[in-house]
Amino acid sequence: MVDLSTRIGDLAIKNPVLTASGTFGFGLEYADFVNLSNLGGFIVKGTTLEPREGNPYPRMAETPSGMLNAVGLQNKGVDHFINHTYPQLEGIGTEVIVNVSGKSVDDYVAVAEKLAALPEIHAIELNISCPNVKQGGMAFGTTCEGASAVVSAVRKAWPRHLMVKLSPNVTSITDIAKAAEGAGADSLSLINTLLGMAIDIERRRPMLSTVTGGLSGPAVKPVAVRMVWQVAKAVNIPVVGLGGIVSAEDAIEFIMAGAVAVQIGTANFIDPSATQKIIDGMEQWCERHGVRSIAELRGCINA
């Protein structure tokens, strides 16, 4: 028996496999393909104070080993989540983490205050890194001052685990990571999507309605592993790694880079039961390599 259980600070989870926000809906969309209670947890779609219609179509383009998206945080707003979605998720048997976005510090705080009333939401993930909205989002995540301002304000409003999701679209991710840690983050997750662009040369037009969008999938994995490794060394809070994971081997790579847990994003689109296969694959890998607890692998590369 391999012990896959892990802790993200005070958050104990049964295995290190979570799902990435925006790629797993509210979990229920995948209930035909995975037993949700087998997951370490899932992170629901980015939630904002007011409902958002998101960006116009086309919002997606496949690129070599990846995809660009420009969804733009379409969601029905935090009140809809509280009144309609949350009741369906109660008792689901795994951690449900809400990904929170906003246009202003006040927006983030207001969403966090409302979510604090939900007893089964033990953690929120602050998205200070979305490349697909014109104001806010990534703006907070690209300067130390911005990150610090939003994290410290939410820290006062949110009593439980506070995960902060970092943008890779910065010169020094370790500086932003330290700023978030200093402002009271309990853990960090990285990476969000990389800002990218693709052109339909036949039509001589950008592939996305917004021209630029967020790159995800296997194409971003080496960048993500590098950043997780750098950040895990630079801070004293746990790091959750993501970006391009499609297999158990990919997930283990992130753990070896220093992550306590991982998130699976684009892989859910390729195979809706990817998360279960990754959990099973990690267990088998550990068995084959005589590893009794996944914790033995964390940051083991000694680099």
Binding site: G54, M60, N69, V71, Q74, F269
Partner: peptide, 11 residues
């Protein structure tokens, strides 16, 4: 992308 109503790419 997903075909399942999860990614909101196809709207």
């Amino acid at each position: 992308a997903c075909g399942l109503g999860a990614c909101l790419c196809c709207v």
